[in-house]
Design a protein around this nucleic acid. Structure first.
Lengths: 137, 137
DNA sequence: GTAATTTATCATATTATCATGACAAAGGCA
DNA sequence: TGCCTTTGTCATGATAATATGATAAATTAC
């Protein structure tokens, strides 16, 4: 459903929201805890930082932290950095343009489903997910 | 949302349902009409045939036809040949197993959304899509 | 200012997906 | 039979996604 990279990003953000209230967390620690490839995760976290989702600090005591309180961080803000959620994705038959006016055969029926998916990412916050978490992320 | 290949397959099946009531359709014709790569489409159609969605015939007058009336052909039967719709896909955080018992942090909320998506593919038939089609597929 | 620590970046490797081209196999028809 | 048509299959190539390893740049601590 999500690309591998978006999934990594989401898991990392959840980890930060859960583990790191104040202290910054090193890539090393996160990669180990989540079993993700270290340098690949590093790049992903860097992108999240540039997008203002995380803040990073180098040197001793450095690492990554959320830049935003989890309550005000919709999942869409995380995953949309890596996966597209535009019209092109939302057309089931892959048309470059597919709207109410230029509808493909699947448009009317698929639109609702696609909108449900997007709404989930837009309306669900990182904090929402942690509420439901019974196990560590 | 769907892989390129699953999307090609779906478009091809829709084309057959719309254009070919009796006569078989050649790959050449379909590739041209749908602007898909010819030999790649050929392989995709072959898989659909082996799965019993299409029937193929070689030689003059040959080509592909639906093996099943469009009313009794759920989209899932087409796309699940190319994309996975199992638990793994349905876990937002990519866990190998994620069920009500072994729930990830996103499970409860995501389950509904994922089920909406799967239900769409399971309950919508090829014929359903053609009903809504105002333009040629 | 030097060393240690940690992120940032670059170059490259690996893998999966998508695509092309050539030819083999099978069916229809004179 | 021999020829044409069309699917079936194989070998290969192109591209994007994922991953690794090496090194640069920044920060902290002494």
């Amino acid at each position: 459903m999500l690309s591998q990279t978006a999934e990594y990003a989401l898991r990392a953000v959840l980890y930060l929201a859960q583990e790191a209230t104040e202290r910054p967390v090193r890539v090393e620690e996160m990669a180990r805890a989540l079993r993700l490839p270290r340098n690949y995760l590093s790049k992903t976290l860097h992108l999240l930082s540039r997008a203002g989702v995380l803040v990073s600090a180098r040197g001793k005591g450095g690492g990554f932290q959320l830049a935003v309180p989890p309550e005000r961080l919709p999942l869409l803000r995380v995953v949309s950095l890596f996966d597209r959620f535009d019209d092109r994705r939302r057309c089931l038959l892959g048309r470059p343009q597919c709207s109410d006016r230029t509808a493909c055969a699947a448009h009317t029926r698929w639109k609702e489903v696609a909108e449900t998916v997007t709404a989930f990412f837009r309306q669900t916050s990182v904090a929402d997910l942690l509420k439901g978490a019974t196990l560590p992320v």
